[in-house]
Design a protein around this nucleic acid. Structure first.
Length: 382
RNA sequence: GCAGGGGUUCCCGAGUGGCCAAAGGGGGCGGGCUGUAAACCCGCUGGCUCAGCCUUCAGAGGUUCGAAUCCUCUCCCCUGCACCA
């Protein structure tokens, strides 16, 4: 029933070498842990990759233990950062935590998922408990971490609280008695610390499995803070469009990591459309995916207006000043609107506009477009 | 604490008294092309009912006809050294 190749598909590191086979021979459902911190409100397609692994384990009869890092987020994970992360407010953290679980369930099997908030145990540790925890690792071990090493070499600050982060995450593994922990490659250090700490607490150390980081259309790691992400909560049209933004050269990678299937072949365009459909369908269902594709075809490929165009209200006065109108309608500055008009990017009922002021009659009942994606309709008065 | 080096428009990064709303790159936006929001090419990229005006170069004052550029003070960052009874 356990196909190791399937469970570990696309992994980067799997440690120790044959540890997973040994665990599987125990003949009981394994507890497969994945910790997520809640610094941003959305899970995106890249962060879904380890969730996909968790799903594979679930489908094979194992238990997914999803740790919501409400408590650790208060410390701030330094992974991949050259600066300390800002500490979020409690309200932000709690708000994010709520939406996270729902998003994760787009990928996971709810019936085989155990959701735990790590504040449950971390908030109860006494100072003596923390000291005991800190005894499990040495400073030298903590400083081995690439990120810390680089920052120290560069003379940048590393706060003591950041050093505690791997320990807290490791303690999660102790608390939930993880058999396997999943994570992106940037989490390798933390995951390995989990092994050491579990051992110190008399537990069988977890198996560590890391997944690749998904690169986005700009070639950088997909990340909410870089704005190159596709959130699982984004609207269907948005998810579809963002996927279509991928350079053709990255399609194969996304098929491997996101769809976990070979590229269908044929035109790059068709593969990319199918990829976009997959991503939307996973979050919003087949119907939404079809609708999003129809929207894309209409608006982007054919340059037409979408099915649903928001309605605007014309201001008073007769010659209507277009820059001001566009500024209100699309949230632009009037200078931006002027530039767009000057570059032929503004259309009135499909025809480019060249004047800044238009008679009210021409706008009444008109469809106004700015660029390819912004539309507003002014319903006829009377 | 002492000595030195820095803080520039979304980001990186030029600019050391007028030619600076400020080079260049990135990003973003617009157009062209295209069975893609890919690739490629061109343009734009502080605000303003805009041939002009207004507000920007960490902050506050000052010198000057004129300051991102000079002076003073303040805040923040970095690099050495010192301190760590």
């Amino acid at each position: 029933m356990d196909d190791v190749a399937l469970l570990t598909r696309n992994h980067v590191e799997l440690l120790p070498a044959h540890g997973l086979e040994t665990k599987l021979k125990l003949g009981r459902p394994l507890r497969v842990k994945l910790g997520i911190d809640v610094t941003s409100p959305d899970i995106h397609v890249g962060r879904a990759i380890p969730l996909q692994r968790m799903r594979a384990f679930q489908d094979a009869g194992h238990i997914g233990v999803l740790i919501v890092g409400d408590y650790t987020t208060r410390i701030g994970d330094p992974s991949g950062r050259s600066a300390e992360r800002p500490i979020l407010s409690d309200a932000e953290i709690d708000g994010n935590a709520k939406t996270y679980v729902a998003q994760a369930m787009q990928i996971l099997d709810p019936g085989r998922t155990e959701v735990r908030f790590n504040g449950e145990w971390l908030s109860k540790l006494s100072f003596a408990d923390v000291v005991r925890l800190t005894r499990t690792l040495t400073v030298a071990q903590l400083l081995e971490r690439d990120d810390f090493a680089k920052r120290i070499a560069a003379g940048q600050p590393v706060s003591v609280s950041e050093l505690l982060y791997p320990l807290m995450q490791a303690y999660d593994s102790v608390a939930v008695e993880a058999d396997v922990e999943l994570g992106g490659t940037d989490q390798l250090y933390n995951l390995l610390a989990g092994r050491t700490v579990m051992e110190a607490y008399g537990l069988e150390p977890q198996i560590v499995l890391t997944t690749p980081l998904l690169l986005s259309w700009d070639g950088a790691k997909m990340s909410s803070s870089l704005g190159n992400n596709i959130p699982l909560t984004a609207a269907p049209e948005e998810q579809f469009g963002r996927t279509m933004r991928l350079p053709d050269t990255m399609i194969a990678d996304w098929y491997r990591l996101v769809v976990e299937a070979p590229v269908p072949g044929g035109e790059a365009m068709d593969s990319k459309l199918a990829l976009a459909r997959f991503i939307v369908a996973r979050s919003h269902g087949q119907d939404a995916a079809a609708a999003a594709e129809a929207h894309f075809t209409r608006v982007v490929r054919e340059g037409g207006a979408p099915e649903e165009v928001p309605e605007g209200v014309l201001p008073d006065g007769d010659p209507i000043h277009l820059p001001a109108l566009l500024a209100v309608a699309f949230g632009l500055s009037t200078s931006e609107a002027r530039r767009m008009i000057g570059q032929g990017g503004v259309k009135l009922n499909g025809a480019a506009v060249a004047t800044l002021d238009l008679p009210r009659a021409e706008l009444d009942g008109a469809l106004v477009q700015a660029g390819k994606r912004r539309f507003v309709r002014y319903p006829p008065s009377s």
